[in-house]
Computed example of a mutant assay.
Amino acid sequence: MTSESTDPKHLAILNGATRMFLAHGYRNASMEKIAQAAPVSKATLYNHFDSKEALLAAVISNLCGSLLQTMTQVTIESDDVENNLNKIAISAMDLIYAEDALAIYRLVVAESPDFPELGQLFYQSGPQTVLTQLEDYFRHLNAEGHFNIIDPVFAADAFFSMLKGDLHLRCLLSKTLRPSANEKKRLISQVIHFYMRGMLHAKA
């Protein structure tokens, strides 16, 4: 049986919904319009997603999928912490500064005054999951006995915050500004260098 992640109709619905949400906003992107954009029947759409809220959550989760997959792999496959953080940072930067991700962020902020549940939905579907993954990784490092990370929750938040900073705000305020590949690489290198020496304390 075809899984949702590879089901062509499921993927078509996600792609169509992403386009409609970004073009028309959450309020004006009706389930009927999303079905037409996919294109699938309304019955097929509701067979996959029983509400527009659930569909938006899936769109956000889909955008975060690559990062979550990378984080899962590095916590299992490698003991090289600096290399692991570099992989996570690369995937995070690709996600944070992707055109669709920035547009979804703008959408949620714009719609939240009228739909306050969207803010919580966005946080739970993407950022919270990402943060929890990194927090768990830091707890794993502590349990292995090689590091003494005093506050894994703060450490995870600080890591992603440094990757965003002022640059992310400027990109949110401009539909044309995007960091180049070299700029992202340089920022990641600076963050990893600072982070390994300022946040992660190896045990003697």
Rank of each mutant, 00 (worst) to 15 (best):
S161F: 00
F154H: 13
N86S: 13
H140E: 14
A156Y: 00
L141A: 08
A110G: 07
E99M: 05
R106F: 09
D136A: 14
K164Y: 01
L131E: 07
V81I: 14
A156C: 07
A103E: 12
G165W: 04
T70C: 11
S174G: 07
V153C: 04
P179A: 12
Q133Y: 13
F115W: 12
F138I: 03
F154K: 13
E135W: 07
F159Y: 05
R170T: 11
R106D: 07
F122C: 02
L107H: 04
L118K: 06
G126H: 01
I76T: 13
L107K: 05
Y97W: 08
E144Y: 04
F160Q: 02
G145P: 06
K175W: 11
S174T: 07
Q133M: 11
L67V: 14
G126Q: 03
E99A: 10
V108D: 03
Y137L: 09
M93K: 02
A89P: 05
L173P: 02
R106Y: 09
D151K: 01
A155V: 10
M71V: 10
E144P: 01
V74Y: 08
L163G: 06
G119C: 03
N142T: 08
A54I: 10
L95A: 12
V130K: 01
A110R: 14
Y137M: 06
R139M: 09
I88L: 08
I150G: 06
P179D: 13
S161E: 09
R139A: 04
L173S: 12
V130F: 01
G119Q: 07
E77Q: 15
R186Y: 01
E77Y: 12
L134C: 03
I88N: 03
L187C: 01
N84I: 07
G145W: 04
R170I: 10
E135A: 11
N84H: 08
V153F: 02
I76Y: 13
N83E: 15
N83S: 15
H146W: 11
D79T: 15
Q128H: 14
Q124D: 15
A89W: 04
Q124L: 14
S180P: 06
V130Q: 04
D166P: 00
N84V: 06
V130P: 00
R170H: 13
D166Q: 12
V108E: 05
I96Q: 04
Q133E: 13
